[in-house]
């Protein structure tokens, strides 16, 4: 079997058109050898989860600059649970206060990143998470 590629969906929910950040992240993840599905602008939580389900991604990454993060992240988490996507990482970044980051991470998102984050840190975080998570899933499959 060949090395399994990490698949990531990158989307930018919300109504503003500032997708520069999402594109920079998408390009960095690609350059790190991942397959990045770029879903683009103005995505609703429903669209994001449906696309992620079809694409069977390991990771969903959201860029939120509009201040709507306390609505969007919980809703995406909820839809992921409804669809049994408990082996998928939800991460992201944008203009989010430290306080809100802590709240969201407690709700079940992965690490969230603020402005000025080095893209290498995000790459490293995703790689590490996938390695750990996949091993757990494979073990589960062998056990069952």
């Amino acid at each position: 079997m060949k090395e399994r590629k990490i698949r990531v969906l990158i989307a930018k929910p919300g109504l503003d058109g500032h997708d520069r950040g999402a594109k920079v992240i998408a390009a960095s993840l690609r350059d790190a050898g991942m397959e990045v599905i770029y879903a683009g602008l103005r995505q609703t939580p429903e669209m994001i989860v449906e696309a992620s389900l079809q694409e069977d991604v390991d990771v969903i990454g959201l860029s939120i600059l509009s201040g709507a993060h306390m609505t969007i992240f919980p809703r995406v988490l909820e839809l992921m649970r409804e669809n049994g996507m408990d082996d998928v990482l939800l991460t992201g970044g944008g203009i989010i206060s430290e306080e809100d980051i802590q709240k969201l991470e407690k709700m079940g998102t992965g690490k969230l990143f603020g402005p000025g984050t080095n893209t290498n840190d995000i790459v490293a975080y995703i790689k590490e998470w996938c390695e750990k998570n996949r091993r757990a899933v494979e073990k589960e499959e062998v056990d069952s």
Binding site: R30, D31, G33, E35, V36, I37, Y38, G40, E50
Partner: peptide, 26 residues
Amino acid sequence: FTGGALLGDRVRMTKTELDPDVFIRS
């Protein structure tokens, strides 16, 4: 060079996005 890929066709496929009888795979 890196084996990575940016799959962007979905961006243009939005007309039937939430239709359960359409399945798009990049």
